[in-house]
Each structure stands twice: as structure tokens, then as C-alpha cells.
Amino acid sequence: MTDTTLDRDQIRAILVARAEVLARSPESEPAGPMVDLLVLSLGRERYGVELHHVEEIQPLRGLAPVPGIPRIWSGVVNLRGRLHPVLDLGAYLGLREPRSYESGAQIVVASGAGLMVALLVDEVAEVVRIRSDEIGPATADGREIIRGITPNLLTVLDLNAVFNDPKLVVNSD
């Protein structure tokens, strides 16, 4: 620094500039359409599903195993008189081996593609709201079940695509 002492006018200019920056209001109400995401915990991974697919969340109780079906299906549960098939989401996504019963686990009853399925997850964490245009494209190709990735690196599942997945089909033969 050659000139250690600044002009009074210079100092004033710097302070004004700072004040303008600080006074800038946080981003006003997002302009584009918003989307609510329910955040699910599967081990260390976190996935998001659009909230309009979700019917309700319940702790896993009274799981009844069904023999002769693919192992990604854990069984069925009875919720207020209705039976719901339980999909082991972690096993389906290839994160872990299927388990027969998860104590302390929760189920998320979701609807899509004309089906209503209970997704078996470790825990439902929270609900977040983001702009739909913030959801970037999925990098991994061949993953039609993934709608995109948020700036927070939350993988957003496309439940319609998931429920249309032929792997879920139980061969009645």
C-alpha cells in the first residue's frame, strides 16, 4: 500500500457501496412454479419424491410377508382396512439387500400410475420446497426413474416411472 490514508470521499464511497450490497433484499418470492419434495432417508442416501404423490406416512407395523413374489417386495400392510403392497425401496434402488422386516422403519403411502404402494424407508426426514426449474438433469444415463438432481444433491425420483417399471411386475404364472 503506497498511500495508507484514504480520502474522506473515497471512504464514504466504499461504505455506501457496502451498504447497498447489504441492503439488497433476499431473493423475493420465486418467480417460477414451486414444487414440494418429501425427503426420504435410505441409509446414508437421501431421495426426494414429489409431495403430491404422497398420501400419508406411518410407522411400519403388522407387515405380512407374501410368498412367491420378487424379493424387492417386502409384503403387505393393513392401513385402516386397506391392504397396501410394501416396496423395499432400498433393495429396489440396489442400495442394499432386501430385508424381511425393519424395526423402527417407516412407510410412505404413495400413488402414481394408477397404483397405491407403501414405500419402505428408514426414515422420513422433512418436506422441502424448491423451484421446479432448479431440478437439473440426471447425469447417470439409463435411469428413467430419476427425474433430476437438486442443487442440494437430492435425487428426485419419478414415482410414475418407478411404478411403471417392469421389475415391479409380479408374475402371476
Binding site: L38, H52, I57, Q58
Partner: peptide, 17 residues
């Protein structure tokens, strides 16, 4: 507390609906 949290989440879902 767990149950309260679930209830709150369900309430949120209902509110969104």
C-alpha cells in the same frame, strides 16, 4: 417425539393437498 414428527409430516401432506 417420533410419533409427533410423523403426525406433523402427515399434517404437512394434508396441508399440501
Amino acid at each position: 417425539a417420533d410419533q409427533s414428527k410423523l403426525l406433523a409430516l402427515n399434517a404437512t401432506i394434508e396441508a399440501a393437498k
